[in-house]
Protein backbone atom coordinates (compact mmCIF):
# COMPACT_ATOMS: atom_id res chain seq x y z
CA UNK A 1 0.00 0.00 0.00
CA UNK A 2 1.32 3.41 -0.86
CA UNK A 3 1.21 5.98 1.83
CA UNK A 4 1.01 9.62 1.04
CA UNK A 5 3.64 11.43 3.09
CA UNK A 6 2.12 14.01 5.38
CA UNK A 7 4.30 17.05 5.09
CA UNK A 8 3.66 18.87 8.30
CA UNK A 9 6.47 21.32 7.65
CA UNK A 10 4.66 22.69 4.67
CA UNK A 11 3.29 25.93 6.09
CA UNK A 12 2.30 29.22 4.60
CA UNK A 13 4.89 31.98 4.39
CA UNK A 14 2.89 34.17 6.78
CA UNK A 15 2.80 31.37 9.32
CA UNK A 16 6.55 30.94 9.15
CA UNK A 17 7.06 34.64 9.74
CA UNK A 18 4.66 34.56 12.66
CA UNK A 19 6.50 31.58 14.12
CA UNK A 20 9.78 33.46 13.81
CA UNK A 21 8.51 36.63 15.43
CA UNK A 22 6.80 34.89 18.32
CA UNK A 23 9.71 32.63 19.15
CA UNK A 24 12.11 35.58 18.98
CA UNK A 25 9.84 37.45 21.37
CA UNK A 26 9.75 34.60 23.85
CA UNK A 27 13.52 34.14 23.72
CA UNK A 28 13.91 37.86 24.30
CA UNK A 29 11.71 37.71 27.40
CA UNK A 30 13.67 34.80 28.77
CA UNK A 31 16.97 36.50 27.97
CA UNK A 32 15.79 39.67 29.70
CA UNK A 33 15.17 37.82 32.97
CA UNK A 34 18.64 36.31 32.83
CA UNK A 35 20.26 39.61 31.89
CA UNK A 36 18.64 41.31 34.89
CA UNK A 37 19.86 38.56 37.17
CA UNK A 38 23.38 38.69 35.68
CA UNK A 39 23.53 42.47 35.97
CA UNK A 40 22.36 42.41 39.58
CA UNK A 41 24.76 39.63 40.54
CA UNK A 42 27.65 41.39 38.87
CA UNK A 43 26.98 44.71 40.60
CA UNK A 44 26.33 43.10 43.99
CA UNK A 45 29.28 40.76 43.96
CA UNK A 46 31.40 42.84 46.34
CA UNK A 47 28.65 42.84 48.94
CA UNK A 48 28.18 39.10 48.88
CA UNK A 49 31.95 38.67 49.08
CA UNK A 50 32.39 41.11 51.97
CA UNK A 51 29.30 40.34 54.02
CA UNK A 52 29.03 36.61 53.40
CA UNK A 53 26.05 34.70 54.78
CA UNK A 54 25.59 37.45 57.38
CA UNK A 55 24.04 39.53 54.63
CA UNK A 56 20.83 37.56 54.93
CA UNK A 57 21.05 36.47 58.57
CA UNK A 58 22.13 39.68 60.32
CA UNK A 59 20.25 42.85 61.20
CA UNK A 60 22.75 45.70 61.07
CA UNK A 61 23.00 48.40 58.39
CA UNK A 62 25.93 50.74 58.89
CA UNK A 63 27.55 52.76 56.11
CA UNK A 64 29.74 54.95 58.37
CA UNK A 65 32.53 52.41 58.72
CA UNK A 66 34.73 51.16 55.90
CA UNK A 67 33.84 48.61 54.74
CA UNK A 68 30.25 49.10 55.93
CA UNK A 69 28.08 46.44 57.52
CA UNK A 70 25.09 45.58 55.40
CA UNK A 71 22.65 42.96 56.63
CA UNK A 72 19.05 42.71 55.57
CA UNK A 73 17.30 39.95 57.53
CA UNK A 74 14.67 42.35 58.95
CA UNK A 75 13.83 43.46 55.41
CA UNK A 76 13.46 39.91 54.11
CA UNK A 77 11.22 38.92 57.02
CA UNK A 78 9.27 42.15 56.66
CA UNK A 79 8.65 41.61 52.95
CA UNK A 80 7.16 38.19 53.58
CA UNK A 81 5.26 39.31 56.71
CA UNK A 82 3.64 42.25 54.94
CA UNK A 83 2.60 40.06 52.04
CA UNK A 84 1.03 37.56 54.43
CA UNK A 85 -0.89 40.30 56.26
CA UNK A 86 -1.99 41.66 52.90
CA UNK A 87 -3.18 38.24 51.74
CA UNK A 88 -4.95 37.58 55.04
CA UNK A 89 -7.00 40.72 54.48
CA UNK A 90 -7.35 40.58 50.71
CA UNK A 91 -8.22 36.93 50.07
CA UNK A 92 -11.45 36.66 52.11
CA UNK A 93 -12.52 40.09 50.89
CA UNK A 94 -11.79 39.36 47.23
CA UNK A 95 -13.43 35.94 47.18
CA UNK A 96 -16.57 37.33 48.86
CA UNK A 97 -16.74 40.30 46.50
CA UNK A 98 -16.27 38.01 43.51
CA UNK A 99 -19.06 35.73 44.70
CA UNK A 100 -21.32 38.71 45.33
CA UNK A 101 -20.73 40.13 41.85
CA UNK A 102 -21.18 36.80 40.13
CA UNK A 103 -24.06 35.25 42.05
CA UNK A 104 -25.86 37.75 44.26
CA UNK A 105 -25.85 41.22 42.76
CA UNK A 106 -28.51 42.30 40.24
CA UNK A 107 -27.04 42.25 36.70
CA UNK A 108 -26.67 46.03 36.48
CA UNK A 109 -24.83 46.38 39.75
CA UNK A 110 -22.56 43.46 38.95
CA UNK A 111 -21.64 45.07 35.62
CA UNK A 112 -20.78 48.37 37.30
CA UNK A 113 -18.88 46.63 40.11
CA UNK A 114 -16.86 44.62 37.63
CA UNK A 115 -15.64 47.69 35.76
CA UNK A 116 -14.93 49.55 39.02
CA UNK A 117 -12.80 46.66 40.24
CA UNK A 118 -10.87 46.64 36.98
CA UNK A 119 -10.38 50.38 37.29
CA UNK A 120 -9.07 49.96 40.82
CA UNK A 121 -6.59 47.38 39.54
CA UNK A 122 -5.20 49.97 37.15
CA UNK A 123 -4.57 52.67 39.77
CA UNK A 124 -0.86 53.53 40.00
CA UNK A 125 0.68 52.39 43.25
CA UNK A 126 1.92 55.88 44.10
CA UNK A 127 -1.70 57.05 44.19
CA UNK A 128 -2.68 54.20 46.48
CA UNK A 129 0.39 54.94 48.61
CA UNK A 130 -0.59 58.60 49.02
CA UNK A 131 -4.18 57.62 49.76
CA UNK A 132 -2.90 55.06 52.25
CA UNK A 133 -0.80 57.65 53.99
CA UNK A 134 -3.46 60.37 54.11
CA UNK A 135 -6.67 58.36 54.59
CA UNK A 136 -6.05 54.76 55.51
CA UNK A 137 -3.24 55.17 58.04
CA UNK A 138 -5.13 57.45 60.49
CA UNK A 139 -8.03 54.96 60.43
CA UNK A 140 -5.92 51.84 60.59
CA UNK A 141 -3.90 53.24 63.45
CA UNK A 142 -7.09 53.31 65.52
CA UNK A 143 -7.88 49.71 64.55
CA UNK A 144 -4.34 48.84 65.49
CA UNK A 145 -4.80 50.45 68.92
CA UNK A 146 -8.06 48.56 69.46
CA UNK A 147 -6.46 45.26 68.48
CA UNK A 148 -3.63 45.77 70.97
CA UNK A 149 -6.03 46.86 73.67
CA UNK A 150 -8.44 43.94 73.33
CA UNK A 151 -6.43 41.15 71.73
CA UNK A 152 -2.97 42.14 72.95
CA UNK A 153 -2.70 38.91 74.92
CA UNK A 154 -2.26 37.13 71.57
CA UNK A 155 1.46 37.58 70.74
CA UNK A 156 0.48 38.38 67.19
CA UNK A 157 -1.28 41.58 68.21
CA UNK A 158 1.10 42.66 70.95
CA UNK A 159 2.51 46.16 70.66
CA UNK A 160 4.76 47.48 73.36
CA UNK A 161 6.17 50.37 71.38
CA UNK A 162 3.36 52.79 72.17
CA UNK A 163 3.32 53.73 68.50
CA UNK A 164 0.64 52.49 66.14
CA UNK A 165 2.05 53.94 62.92
CA UNK A 166 4.46 52.45 60.40
CA UNK A 167 3.81 48.80 61.29
CA UNK A 168 3.60 45.79 58.95
CA UNK A 169 -0.13 45.95 59.70
CA UNK A 170 -0.36 49.35 57.94
CA UNK A 171 1.72 48.20 55.01
CA UNK A 172 -0.34 45.00 54.87
CA UNK A 173 -3.54 47.01 54.56
CA UNK A 174 -2.08 49.15 51.80
CA UNK A 175 -0.92 46.06 49.93
CA UNK A 176 -4.34 44.44 50.47
CA UNK A 177 -6.08 47.41 48.83
CA UNK A 178 -3.76 47.01 45.85
CA UNK A 179 -4.19 43.28 45.37
CA UNK A 180 -7.92 42.99 46.13
CA UNK A 181 -8.84 44.06 42.56
CA UNK A 182 -6.48 41.51 41.00
CA UNK A 183 -7.66 38.59 43.11
CA UNK A 184 -11.30 39.65 42.77
CA UNK A 185 -11.08 39.95 39.03
CA UNK A 186 -9.49 36.53 38.55
CA UNK A 187 -11.78 34.85 41.10
CA UNK A 188 -14.88 36.33 39.49
CA UNK A 189 -13.77 35.05 36.12
CA UNK A 190 -13.24 31.47 37.33
CA UNK A 191 -16.43 31.51 39.40
CA UNK A 192 -18.40 32.52 36.32
CA UNK A 193 -17.24 29.28 34.71
CA UNK A 194 -18.62 27.09 37.48
CA UNK A 195 -21.45 25.03 36.00
CA UNK A 196 -24.74 26.81 36.82
CA UNK A 197 -26.34 23.38 37.25
CA UNK A 198 -24.20 22.86 40.34
CA UNK A 199 -25.43 26.11 41.84
CA UNK A 200 -29.03 25.05 41.13
CA UNK A 201 -28.38 21.66 42.68
CA UNK A 202 -26.96 23.30 45.77
CA UNK A 203 -29.90 25.68 46.10
CA UNK A 204 -32.38 22.85 45.62
CA UNK A 205 -30.64 20.96 48.45
CA UNK A 206 -31.30 23.79 50.86
CA UNK A 207 -28.00 25.57 50.30
CA UNK A 208 -27.78 29.23 51.27
CA UNK A 209 -25.60 31.76 49.51
CA UNK A 210 -22.86 31.24 52.05
CA UNK A 211 -22.95 27.46 52.15
CA UNK A 212 -23.11 27.28 48.34
CA UNK A 213 -20.05 29.54 48.12
CA UNK A 214 -18.16 27.54 50.72
CA UNK A 215 -19.06 23.99 49.71
CA UNK A 216 -19.67 24.20 45.97
CA UNK A 217 -18.29 27.30 44.25
CA UNK A 218 -14.95 27.68 46.05
CA UNK A 219 -14.02 23.97 45.88
CA UNK A 220 -14.89 23.89 42.17
CA UNK A 221 -13.07 27.11 41.32
CA UNK A 222 -10.23 26.52 43.78
CA UNK A 223 -7.30 26.18 41.45
CA UNK A 224 -8.30 29.30 39.52
CA UNK A 225 -8.75 31.31 42.71
CA UNK A 226 -5.32 30.13 43.89
CA UNK A 227 -3.92 31.36 40.58
CA UNK A 228 -5.42 34.79 41.29
CA UNK A 229 -3.93 34.75 44.78
CA UNK A 230 -0.53 33.96 43.24
CA UNK A 231 -0.78 36.98 40.99
CA UNK A 232 -1.70 39.12 43.99
CA UNK A 233 1.16 37.65 46.00
CA UNK A 234 3.59 38.54 43.24
CA UNK A 235 2.50 42.15 43.37
CA UNK A 236 2.51 42.19 47.18
CA UNK A 237 6.09 40.92 47.41
CA UNK A 238 7.41 43.44 44.95
CA UNK A 239 5.32 46.42 45.98
CA UNK A 240 7.57 49.40 46.56
CA UNK A 241 6.24 52.92 46.56
CA UNK A 242 2.94 52.37 48.34
CA UNK A 243 4.65 50.57 51.21
CA UNK A 244 7.44 53.11 51.34
CA UNK A 245 4.87 55.77 52.27
CA UNK A 246 3.39 53.92 55.22
CA UNK A 247 6.14 51.74 56.67
CA UNK A 248 8.92 52.43 59.20
CA UNK A 249 12.35 51.13 58.18
CA UNK A 250 14.02 49.90 61.34
CA UNK A 251 16.76 47.29 61.34
CA UNK A 252 15.22 45.11 63.98
CA UNK A 253 13.79 41.81 62.85
CA UNK A 254 10.04 41.71 63.40
CA UNK A 255 9.06 38.07 63.01
CA UNK A 256 5.36 38.31 63.67
CA UNK A 257 4.42 41.31 65.83
CA UNK A 258 2.42 42.86 63.04
CA UNK A 259 1.35 45.92 65.03
CA UNK A 260 4.83 46.98 66.11
CA UNK A 261 6.55 49.55 63.91
CA UNK A 262 9.74 47.56 63.42
CA UNK A 263 11.21 45.87 60.38
CA UNK A 264 10.82 46.96 56.80
CA UNK A 265 10.71 45.54 53.32
CA UNK A 266 13.34 45.00 50.65
CA UNK A 267 11.72 47.20 47.98
CA UNK A 268 11.21 50.09 50.44
CA UNK A 269 14.79 49.73 51.60
CA UNK A 270 16.02 50.11 48.04
CA UNK A 271 13.83 53.17 47.42
CA UNK A 272 14.73 54.77 50.73
CA UNK A 273 18.47 54.41 50.37
CA UNK A 274 18.99 54.64 46.65
CA UNK A 275 19.33 58.42 46.31
CA UNK A 276 22.13 58.91 48.81
CA UNK A 277 24.42 55.93 48.79
CA UNK A 278 28.10 55.28 49.10
CA UNK A 279 29.39 52.96 46.35
CA UNK A 280 29.59 49.97 48.69
CA UNK A 281 26.06 50.66 49.93
CA UNK A 282 24.86 50.75 46.33
CA UNK A 283 26.30 47.30 45.83
CA UNK A 284 24.46 46.17 48.97
CA UNK A 285 21.19 47.49 47.54
CA UNK A 286 21.82 45.53 44.34
CA UNK A 287 22.41 42.46 46.50
CA UNK A 288 19.12 43.16 48.27
CA UNK A 289 17.54 43.16 44.81
CA UNK A 290 19.01 39.74 44.10
CA UNK A 291 17.65 38.45 47.40
CA UNK A 292 14.19 39.87 46.60
CA UNK A 293 14.38 38.15 43.22
CA UNK A 294 15.15 34.85 44.92
CA UNK A 295 12.56 35.27 47.69
CA UNK A 296 9.88 35.98 45.07
CA UNK A 297 11.00 32.97 43.08
CA UNK A 298 10.87 30.68 46.13
CA UNK A 299 7.48 31.91 47.32
CA UNK A 300 6.09 31.55 43.83
CA UNK A 301 7.48 28.06 43.49
CA UNK A 302 5.93 27.00 46.80
CA UNK A 303 2.60 28.52 45.81
CA UNK A 304 2.66 26.92 42.37
CA UNK A 305 3.37 23.52 43.84
CA UNK A 306 0.40 23.98 46.20
CA UNK A 307 -1.81 24.80 43.22
CA UNK A 308 -0.53 21.83 41.25
CA UNK A 309 -0.98 19.46 44.13
CA UNK A 310 -4.58 20.55 44.63
CA UNK A 311 -5.23 20.24 40.90
CA UNK A 312 -3.81 16.73 40.92
CA UNK A 313 -6.06 15.83 43.82
CA UNK A 314 -9.04 17.18 41.87
CA UNK A 315 -8.12 15.16 38.80
CA UNK A 316 -7.61 11.83 40.56
Amino acid sequence: MKRTPMNTRQVAKGDRAFFGISSAASFFTLALVFLVLIFLSFRSWTTFAEQGIKFVTGSTWDNTTNPGTFQILPMIVGTVLISMVGLAIAVPASVSVAYFIEYMAPPRISKIATSLIDLLAALPSVVIGLWGMMVLVPQASEWSGLLTQHLGFIPFFRNTSGNTLGSPFMAGWTVAIMIIPIITSVSREVMSRVDKELISASTALGGTNFSTMRRVVIPTAKSGILGGILLGLGRALGETVAIFFVLNLIFDTNWYHILEPRGGSIPSLIVAKFGETTPSELSALMAAGVVLFIVTLIVNMIATSIVQRSEKRMAS
Binding site: E197, S200, A201, T203, L205, V216, P219, T220, M314
Partner: peptide, 17 residues
Protein backbone atom coordinates in the same frame (compact mmCIF):
# COMPACT_ATOMS: atom_id res chain seq x y z
CA UNK B 1 -36.58 23.29 49.38
CA UNK B 2 -35.68 20.91 52.20
CA UNK B 3 -39.20 19.44 52.06
CA UNK B 4 -39.53 19.55 48.27
CA UNK B 5 -36.51 17.89 46.68
CA UNK B 6 -35.49 18.23 43.06
CA UNK B 7 -33.67 16.09 40.49
CA UNK B 8 -32.47 17.83 37.36
CA UNK B 9 -32.42 16.97 33.68
CA UNK B 10 -28.66 16.63 33.42
CA UNK B 11 -27.03 14.53 36.15
CA UNK B 12 -25.22 17.12 38.27
CA UNK B 13 -23.36 15.51 41.17
CA UNK B 14 -20.81 17.79 42.80
CA UNK B 15 -17.53 16.92 41.03
CA UNK B 16 -15.34 17.99 43.94
CA UNK B 17 -17.05 15.64 46.36
Amino acid sequence: RLRVGMVFQKPNPFPTM
